[in-house]
Computed example of a mutant assay.
Amino acid sequence: MIAIFSDTHSSGGHELEGDALTAAREADAVVHAGDFTSETALEAFQDECDRLFAVHGNADSAAVRDRLPTARVVEENGIRIAVTHRRDGGETGLAMFGRSRGADVVVFGHSHRPTVVETEDVVLLNPGSHADPRGNRPGFATVEARRNGELEVEIREPNGTVLETVAISTA
């Protein structure tokens, strides 16, 4: 299982609790789409996760930006994930970003709104914000590869309430 987070916006720590904290601790890999805001938050995530793959966002401090790339590709459990905080051009720009990297899923943040969009050849996934939802429901996501070749994407609230589940064929 891959746990996915974004937009922590914290000066004090990871702000993880409940099922979000459990997912971060138990995941094969954790992906974060930026806006930790502080090095303290980034380091708190690193302390909780065995394997953290993160990018920086527009609200990250210079110290965080110096430590993290703007974009990256993560391959885990047969899933190829392109990660960015935001991309000009909306859904089209995100889909092009993912296609150019051969991704199954594009993980992005910035809007704080949990979202899953299936495009013709890539899934766009914004986990929302577990800590600073800004009028949206708080969220994080999980992605799991199933034996039948499908990906199961879930967006959940930190307390475990499932907001959306999508099964996606990768064949």
Results as ranks from 00 to 15, higher is better:
residue 1 M to D: 05
residue 3 A to F: 04
residue 3 A to T: 11
residue 6 S to Y: 09
residue 6 S to Q: 10
residue 6 S to T: 08
residue 9 H to I: 10
residue 10 S to R: 05
residue 12 G to W: 14
residue 12 G to D: 15
residue 13 G to F: 13
residue 14 H to P: 13
residue 17 E to V: 15
residue 20 A to P: 05
residue 20 A to T: 14
residue 24 A to H: 11
residue 25 R to F: 03
residue 25 R to C: 03
residue 26 E to A: 08
residue 27 A to F: 01
residue 29 A to Y: 02
residue 29 A to K: 07
residue 30 V to G: 02
residue 30 V to W: 07
residue 33 A to N: 07
residue 33 A to P: 09
residue 33 A to C: 14
residue 35 D to I: 09
residue 35 D to H: 08
residue 36 F to Q: 03
residue 37 T to F: 02
residue 39 E to W: 04
residue 39 E to K: 11
residue 40 T to W: 02
residue 43 E to W: 07
residue 43 E to Y: 11
residue 44 A to C: 06
residue 45 F to N: 13
residue 46 Q to K: 13
residue 47 D to V: 05
residue 49 C to Q: 08
residue 49 C to E: 04
residue 52 L to I: 12
residue 52 L to H: 11
residue 53 F to G: 01
residue 55 V to S: 06
residue 57 G to R: 08
residue 57 G to W: 04
residue 58 N to W: 01
residue 58 N to T: 13
residue 59 A to G: 07
residue 59 A to Q: 12
residue 60 D to E: 03
residue 60 D to C: 02
residue 61 S to C: 03
residue 63 A to C: 00
residue 64 V to I: 10
residue 65 R to T: 04
residue 66 D to W: 01
residue 67 R to N: 01
residue 67 R to L: 10
residue 67 R to C: 02
residue 68 L to G: 01
residue 69 P to Y: 01
residue 69 P to A: 01
residue 70 T to Y: 00
residue 70 T to S: 00
residue 74 V to G: 00
residue 74 V to C: 02
residue 75 E to N: 05
residue 75 E to A: 12
residue 78 G to N: 11
residue 78 G to V: 15
residue 78 G to T: 12
residue 79 I to L: 05
residue 79 I to K: 07
residue 80 R to W: 01
residue 81 I to V: 07
residue 81 I to E: 01
residue 82 A to I: 08
residue 83 V to I: 06
residue 83 V to K: 04
residue 84 T to P: 00
residue 84 T to R: 05
residue 85 H to S: 04
residue 86 R to N: 12
residue 86 R to F: 09
residue 87 R to H: 14
residue 87 R to D: 06
residue 88 D to S: 15
residue 91 E to W: 00
residue 95 A to E: 10
residue 96 M to H: 11
residue 99 R to N: 13
residue 100 S to C: 06
residue 101 R to F: 05
residue 102 G to P: 02
residue 105 V to K: 03
residue 107 V to C: 13
residue 112 H to E: 07
residue 112 H to K: 10
residue 112 H to G: 08
residue 115 T to D: 03
residue 116 V to I: 13
residue 117 V to T: 14
residue 119 T to E: 13
residue 119 T to F: 00
residue 119 T to N: 00
residue 120 E to K: 12
residue 122 V to I: 02
residue 122 V to T: 04
residue 123 V to R: 06
residue 124 L to H: 07
residue 124 L to F: 05
residue 125 L to W: 02
residue 125 L to Q: 10
residue 126 N to L: 06
residue 127 P to W: 10
residue 130 H to Y: 04
residue 130 H to F: 05
residue 130 H to P: 12
residue 131 A to Y: 01
residue 132 D to P: 00
residue 133 P to G: 09
residue 134 R to P: 08
residue 134 R to A: 13
residue 134 R to W: 09
residue 135 G to C: 12
residue 136 N to P: 00
residue 136 N to C: 01
residue 136 N to W: 06
residue 137 R to N: 02
residue 142 T to F: 05
residue 144 E to R: 15
residue 144 E to F: 00
residue 145 A to G: 11
residue 145 A to N: 08
residue 146 R to N: 13
residue 148 N to E: 09
residue 148 N to P: 06
residue 149 G to K: 15
residue 154 E to M: 11
residue 154 E to D: 14
residue 157 E to A: 11
residue 158 P to Y: 13
residue 158 P to C: 12
residue 159 N to W: 08
residue 162 V to R: 14
residue 163 L to T: 02
residue 164 E to M: 02
residue 165 T to M: 03
residue 166 V to S: 10
residue 166 V to F: 00
residue 168 I to Y: 10
residue 169 S to G: 05
residue 171 A to C: 00
